[in-house]
């Protein structure tokens, strides 16, 4: 196979799988709580800054993972209690409140680290030969980890008892509560879990991104578009949404450039929002 084609395909897979990890947390929270957490991107951003912080302390890169999970898990806990739980009955206000939260987190990080771009060194340097094409090792590892993570979570969601409970609550909140599923605790844990997933994605992606306070904005929009295109609430929808958004951006970027890629994604999202707001796989 032509090595350039190989690289282009790997780039698309990388884009789609990492995007799916970011969206997964958002989608689980939305599916269960009906809450569109517009601050989800900021948790990715905080995860990335954790990686930067750890590296600045000359600690091993992997130490960033527990730190990010701790920071974002705690933040998620506080946010769920103060902003999300009191507003279950007011979905539009939740949207606004989490939007305000996203600004708050962005500005807070900016006040600490400034507006500048930070670089995180890649923990794994060099490249690997994939079918005759050189591909950066870390990027390849990240793709594999992302796919494994999404697959593992889907498997867990389908097979585990907690997964079944979550699905029960998604289907019918009152009924789930009445058969003894602890709905409030489950909702809290799910929200925290979504935040942790975002933080993990942030740590993993940090070496490949210009780490800056507005990083989350890009992710939340793309994630929202994935949910719009895929349809809110199903995993098939999530993966196909990530495929469409990540794939289109990556392919158009490969043939033209990033600006066109981004513009195309925006146009697709607007068309979906307007003409097919329930996405490709609507929740029944």
């Amino acid at each position: 196979m032509d090595p350039i084609l190989t690289i282009n395909i790997l780039n698309v897979v990388y884009e789609v799988s990492t995007l799916a990890v970011v969206v997964l947390g958002l989608a689980v929270v939305f599916g269960l709580l009906g809450v569109m957490n517009l601050a989800h991107g900021e948790f990715v951003m905080i995860g990335a800054y954790c990686a930067f912080f750890i590296q600045a302390q000359n600690l091993p890169f992997l130490a960033a993972i527990p730190l990010a999970l701790l920071v974002c898990g705690f933040l998620g806990l506080v946010v769920e209690r103060l902003l999300v739980r009191p507003l279950y009955a007011r979905p539009f206000d939740t949207l606004l409140a989490t939007w305000g939260l996203s600004m708050l987190l962005r500005e807070a990080v900016e006040a600490v680290y400034g507006r500048g771009f930070r670089s995180v060194a890649t923990p794994l340097t060099g490249s690997v030969d994939v079918l005759g094409a050189d591909y950066p090792s870390y990027r390849l590892l990240l793709t594999v980890v992302s796919i494994a993570l999404v697959a593992g979570l889907v498997w867990w969601f389908v097979r585990s008892a907690t997964g079944r409970r979550i699905r029960a609550v998604v289907n019918n909140r009152e009924l789930a509560g009445s058969v003894g599923i602890p709905v409030t605790a489950l909702a809290r844990n799910t929200f925290v879990f979504g935040c942790c997933l975002a933080a993990l994605a942030g740590v993993m992606l940090a070496p490949l991104l210009p780490v800056n306070p507005t990083l989350g904005l890009d992710f939340i929009l793309k994630s929202f578009f994935v949910l719009v295109v895929g349809g809110l609430g199903s995993l098939v929808g999530l993966i196909s949404g990530a495929g469409v958004i990540g794939g289109v951006e990556s392919v158009v970027s490969a043939f033209l450039d990033r600006t066109y890629g981004y513009t195309t994604v925006l146009i697709i999202a607007i068309l979906f929002l307007w003409l097919r707001p329930n996405g490709l796989f609507p929740r029944t």
């Binding site: 206000d93 409140a97 305000g100 500005e107 006040a111």
Partner: peptide, 15 residues
């Protein structure tokens, strides 16, 4: 921290 304060004010106003 002005803009952090402003964001907090916004949240409080919305709620």
């Amino acid at each position: 921290y002005w803009e952090v304060i402003l964001a907090a004010i916004f949240i409080v106003v919305v709620l």
